[in-house]
Design a protein around this nucleic acid. Structure first.
Lengths: 260, 260
DNA sequence: ACCTGAACACCGTTCAAGT
DNA sequence: ACCTGAACACCGTTCAAGT
């Protein structure tokens, strides 16, 4: 318990998922007048975040969406942060592609999981900043992590290396999804397509001598050839390449493990 | 130009760095009464962000730090967003380790650049969320990117692959720095060390049956053996492993390039 | 047990006015 | 050219009160 400017501040919990069971049972136990419960609130949160983005999300707006007073929500959820953590785990729940992922070549399974993760981050551009802000230990996050560990178990890496690779894969995919989700968010805010946005930025840069000096001939890198079929495809190629890099790296490290 | 709830909203610029020269020249042109200019404002912003974090940063607090009215800052900077973008490029400027990085084995140079980048993100835990939010085309960001491209030029990859690898390396290091900077930020907010924080989270999880089921024996993964000398060292190992994975992957892909 | 209204201590930014 | 004060339209959250 600390004091900030005379206001009592209790140390924040690490995560909603670590609150005691009693607090978590604030789910519907009878027919509420408003029909509210945690699930419904979380769903509305996801809907609102998808529609208007993280910056415009507020407890008051959420309450409006639920046709209820802002303060009603606080009966089910302690803070805005907790609510966002719930929303985060909810969309990670979309990644349950089914248990068929448990067989087949580990390379292909890793590619599939990575692609699904990235696709989710692109579908929900507000996920990236949140993912970086929480512990990600909700039930759905854990289920996904378990699947990824199963894949790496089959890679031929040693037990210690599997943990290292798990962390590498996650941060790697996160890095991609975060940047990408962000550009999407910005474009949406500006009301442009990604290609327009990119062209505008490139145009502004080309008109500035420092930038040309720095990038050399920008046409070479970002012109029709370099860009191929637009920004989306360029990023697709980048991601595919990065995935190759990852798989190739794991294979090579696994050979080292096997050799010793 | 759009309308949101009757309020006129002009499409946001892509970046401070893409504003016209006239606007950027709002630097000191004479001795100001308050001694304000962009540089001083940016420096104060970095100081404040380091000390209190992104969440507590506000234009009003910054103004207080500068002993000036909140609105004075707006003479030099259009929006809070612009200011944060300036602060971001300023700390990337810390990465100028000198031109000696231009020779030597590309593997070692890549490792050095990656390590420096990560260290910077750990020094300034507010960088990660911002880095994901802007285009990162300030002069210092570009200088760093140029150095990284020089390194990859020497890796033996083809020209196209070099671009892919550049993106991979950046997103990769970003992923690491973001997660790590975040935990640091949370710990600081809670007034705990990272080890305390980690132990607490682990303790809470161990007391919950679902978690044990999910992670198996948590002691095995996170106990004294798995953790080694604390969280910091565990992350150090993870990062080192990931760096190996990256270098090994690039080497293998370069061999493929050479073979065809 | 659940929901509301009023209030507190904040925000970023605009705008008219001062020097 | 630079800086200020007052004001607008918001925030998250607390707290006492209602049903």
């Amino acid at each position: 318990m600390g004091m900030v400017k005379g206001r009592a501040v209790s140390a924040p919990r690490a995560s909603v998922w670590l609150t005691d069971a009693a607090a978590r049972t604030r789910t519907r136990r009878s027919e509420q007048p408003s029909g509210l419960d945690r699930e419904r609130i979380t769903a509305a949160t996801v809907r609102l975040l998808d529609r208007e983005g993280l910056a415009r999300f507020s407890m008051r707006r959420l309450a409006g969406e639920l046709k209820v007073t802002a303060m009603s929500v606080y009966w089910y959820v302690d803070t805005k942060e907790d609510l966002l953590e719930l929303a985060l785990d909810a969309v990670v729940g979309e990644l349950t592609v089914g248990p068929e992922g448990l067989e087949g070549d580990w390379r292909q399974r890793l590619r599939e999981l990575a692609r699904a993760y990235r696709a989710m981050m692109v579908r929900h551009p507000w996920v990236a900043p949140l993912m970086g802000s929480y512990l990600n230990i909700g039930p759905c996050s854990q289920a996904f992590s378990r699947r990824m560990r199963a894949v790496l178990h089959d890679s031929g890496l040693g037990a210690k290396e599997q943990l290292g690779a798990l962390s590498a894969v996650f941060r790697f995919v996160y890095g991609f999804g975060a940047i990408e989700g962000n550009v999407i968010r910005r474009c949406r805010a500006a009301g442009h397509t990604q290609d327009e946005y990119y062209r505008e930025a490139m145009g502004s840069m080309a008109r500035r001598p420092e930038f040309v000096e720095s990038f050399g001939d920008t046409e070479e890198l970002f012109g029709p050839e370099g860009m191929g079929g637009g920004v989306a495809e360029m990023r697709e190629r980048d991601f595919a390449f990065a995935l190759d890099l990852l798989v190739t790296g794991i294979e090579a490290m696994a050979r080292e493990t096997a050799a010793t």
